[in-house]
């Protein structure tokens, strides 16, 4: 089991409030890694640190030889990100949004169009390239964001609550598409969610709550170690126990 991205003893505070407390997580290469946590667990803060929107106050994040502290731009070039809040420009077309992102990653227009056509075809949006993003439904917008995140051929794909606000069918379709990326392209994925039905027992799982890692490992192993039959039960037990102690 190779670790693709290592988050090592990372802590983060907003003033006096601790958002992340000594968090260490290793993303398993080529796998669908699940980051489970209720709202307020620290998932978005972790994403902001991974994407250098926040400066790492304590600890280190490494991707191979690249460290976010020492060589942040090299690390950014190897990450694809889908944020919880949409970051698409609604008044631009699908292709314009992709062209903008690709250019910011140093790709030529010709190369962007070639890659965009491939990704949009794969995601079933080949006929929507000239449509304004505003005219797309939530599920299609998410697909555009995934296509955009893949455009510069990242090693790691980070998705923060990518299925939030979507109907069940769209949620399942997005989840399936991302899993396909792991299987077919060997992409390492970090899928942050609070929805347990999106996670399989075979996935590497991290349970984050109140800024701390409560459990980490393959879902099935984590359950066995804790004498629980399902991730739901384990998640409920761990998070409610913390609530009770808080």
């Amino acid at each position: 089991m190779t670790i693709a991205l290592q988050i090592d003893r990372v802590s983060h505070q907003y003033g006096q409030r601790v958002a992340l407390d000594n968090v260490s997580i290793g993303l398993v290469e080529g796998q669908f890694n699940a980051l489970l946590g209720p709202n307020g667990a620290g998932k978005s803060t972790l994403f902001a640190l991974l994407t250098r929107l926040y400066r790492v106050q304590q600890g280190e994040i490494r991707l191979g030889d690249d460290s976010i502290n020492r060589n942040p731009r090299a690390l950014l070039a190897r990450l694809g990100v889908v944020f919880q809040q949409s970051t698409l420009d609604l008044d631009l077309t699908v292709m314009q949004n992709l062209e903008y992102h690709g250019a910011l990653h140093g790709l030529s227009t010709r190369e962007i169009r070639r890659r965009a056509a491939e990704e949009l075809e794969w995601l079933g949006l080949a006929d929507r390239t000239k449509d304004k993003v505003r005219s797309l439904n939530g599920g299609h917008r998410r697909r555009v964001e995934i296509a955009r995140a893949l455009l510069h051929r990242p090693d790691i794909l980070l998705l923060d609550e990518a299925s939030a606000g979507l109907d069940v069918a769209s949620r399942q379709a997005i989840n399936k598409a991302v899993r396909q990326l792991c299987q077919e392209r060997g992409l390492t994925v970090l899928w942050a969610t609070h929805l347990l039905e999106e996670i399989s027992l075979d996935d590497p799982v991290v349970i984050l709550h109140r800024g701390r890692v409560l459990a980490e490992g393959i879902g099935r192993d984590v359950c066995e170690r804790s004498d629980e039959t399902s991730l739901d039960a384990l998640f409920d037990r761990l998070t409610s126990a913390k609530e009770a102690h808080a």
Binding site: T51, R52, L79
Partner: peptide, 8 residues
């Protein structure tokens, strides 16, 4: 965020 995620 799209701008800030650029490696440039």
């Amino acid at each position: 965020k799209v701008l800030l995620m650029s490696p440039v």
